[in-house]
């Protein structure tokens, strides 16, 4: 390899490192740690938190509109759907679809 090429290569590396140039492909470094238990616990948290968020939002809207159980019930179901969506995204991340 000639000295010129070597210099170009090192310059490219340095520029990439400083974020001046986009890397040829973004490496997926630092993915979430795997393992069956860990994924399972994460999925559980996702479902429960989506349910809490849904039920909470429904309850808040009910409190505001004065229609107690109805929006709460609707958003409880929506929260469950969002939980399933969260788990789906956990297994199948959105940005890998590109």
């Amino acid at each position: 390899m000639s000295e010129q090429n070597d210099f170009e290569r090192r310059l490219q590396q340095a520029r990439q490192k400083q974020g001046l140039e986009q890397k040829p492909e973004t490496t997926a470094s630092g993915a979430l740690p795997g393992g069956g238990w860990r994924i399972g616990l994460r999925a559980g948290t996702e479902v429960v938190s989506a349910l809490i968020a849904g039920a909470g939002l429904g309850w808040l809207l009910d409190w505001w509109l004065g229609s107690f159980p109805w929006l709460f019930l609707v958003f409880f179901v929506v929260g469950g759907a969002a939980g399933v969506l969260n788990v789906y995204r956990l297994i199948n991340p959105r940005n890998s679809a590109r």
Binding site: S49, F75, A81, A82
Partner: peptide, 9 residues
């Protein structure tokens, strides 16, 4: 709801 559940999880 999925977006709002992020800080909770």
């Amino acid at each position: 709801v999925s977006y709002l559940s992020r800080p909770i999880s």
